[in-house]
Amino acid sequence: MRHRLAELRGPDVPAKALDARALAALAANPGCRRRAILDGAGVDKVRLAGALGAPSGFGQSQFALTRGNAFEARVKADGGAELLRLAHARLDPGAEPPEAAAVPDLTAHGPEGRTARTALALREATRAGGWTLLDHPMLALDVAGSLAFLEPDAVVVHPDGSWSVVEIKSFPMLDGAADPAKVGAAARQAAVYVLALEEVAERIGAEPEGHAGAEGDGGPRRQSAHGGTRAAVVRHRVLLVCPKDFSNLAAASAVDVRKQRAVTARQLARLTRIEEIAEALPEGTCFAPDRSAEELTAAVAAVPATYAPECLSACELAFHCRELAREAGAVTRLGRPLRAELGGLATVEEVLAAARGFSGDPDDPAVAALRRAAALRAEALESAKARAGAEVAACR
Results as ranks from 00 to 15, higher is better:
residue 168 I to R: 03
residue 237 R to I: 08
residue 63 F to T: 06
residue 255 V to H: 10
residue 237 R to Y: 03
residue 334 L to Q: 09
residue 132 T to D: 09
residue 327 E to Q: 15
residue 30 P to A: 08
residue 275 E to D: 14
residue 180 P to T: 01
residue 108 A to S: 13
residue 209 E to D: 10
residue 383 S to Q: 12
residue 186 A to K: 02
residue 41 A to H: 01
residue 80 G to P: 00
residue 119 A to H: 12
residue 249 L to K: 13
residue 71 F to N: 01
residue 350 E to A: 15
residue 335 G to K: 11
residue 274 I to P: 00
residue 140 A to C: 08
residue 146 S to K: 08
residue 311 C to I: 00
residue 394 A to V: 01
residue 72 E to M: 11
residue 4 R to N: 05
residue 388 A to P: 04
residue 184 G to Q: 03
residue 65 L to V: 09
residue 139 L to K: 04
residue 311 C to R: 00
residue 268 L to S: 01
residue 246 F to W: 14
residue 82 E to V: 11
residue 119 A to N: 04
residue 389 G to T: 07
residue 43 V to H: 07
residue 188 R to H: 06
residue 280 A to M: 05
residue 116 A to P: 09
residue 146 S to I: 02
residue 224 S to K: 02
residue 276 E to R: 15
residue 52 L to G: 10
residue 285 T to H: 12
residue 234 V to H: 04
residue 183 V to Q: 14
residue 254 A to C: 11
residue 5 L to G: 04
residue 216 G to N: 08
residue 391 E to S: 14
residue 162 S to A: 15
residue 115 T to C: 15
residue 245 D to N: 15
residue 49 A to T: 09
residue 16 K to V: 12
residue 279 E to G: 06
residue 279 E to S: 12
residue 313 S to D: 03
residue 32 C to H: 02
residue 303 V to E: 04
residue 85 R to D: 13
residue 340 A to F: 06
residue 9 R to P: 02
residue 213 G to D: 10
residue 197 L to A: 11
residue 368 A to S: 15
residue 89 A to H: 12
residue 52 L to R: 05
residue 238 V to E: 03
residue 69 N to R: 08
residue 139 L to M: 11
residue 243 P to R: 00
residue 173 M to E: 08
residue 392 V to T: 11
residue 31 G to W: 00
residue 384 A to T: 14
residue 239 L to V: 09
residue 123 R to Q: 13
residue 43 V to G: 04
residue 311 C to W: 00
residue 3 H to N: 09
residue 100 A to D: 13
residue 39 D to R: 05
residue 68 G to H: 06
residue 359 S to A: 15
residue 20 A to M: 03
residue 362 P to A: 13
residue 116 A to R: 15
residue 288 A to E: 10
residue 100 A to T: 14
residue 178 A to W: 01
residue 395 C to M: 10
residue 280 A to E: 08
residue 157 V to S: 02
residue 227 G to L: 13
residue 207 E to N: 11
residue 241 V to A: 03
residue 278 A to K: 02
residue 164 S to G: 05
residue 57 G to I: 07
residue 1 M to L: 13
residue 302 A to P: 02
residue 167 E to W: 01
residue 223 Q to E: 11
residue 292 S to D: 14
residue 182 K to Y: 10
residue 19 D to E: 09
residue 68 G to W: 04
residue 190 A to T: 04
residue 256 D to S: 09
residue 276 E to D: 15
residue 31 G to I: 01
residue 317 L to T: 03
residue 364 D to I: 11
residue 242 C to A: 10
residue 332 T to H: 08
residue 381 L to K: 15
residue 265 A to M: 01
residue 96 E to N: 10
residue 208 P to R: 14
residue 221 R to L: 06
residue 247 S to L: 12
residue 306 T to C: 07
residue 281 L to T: 05
residue 65 L to Y: 03
residue 3 H to D: 14
residue 274 I to D: 00
residue 248 N to D: 10
residue 266 R to G: 07
residue 143 V to L: 05
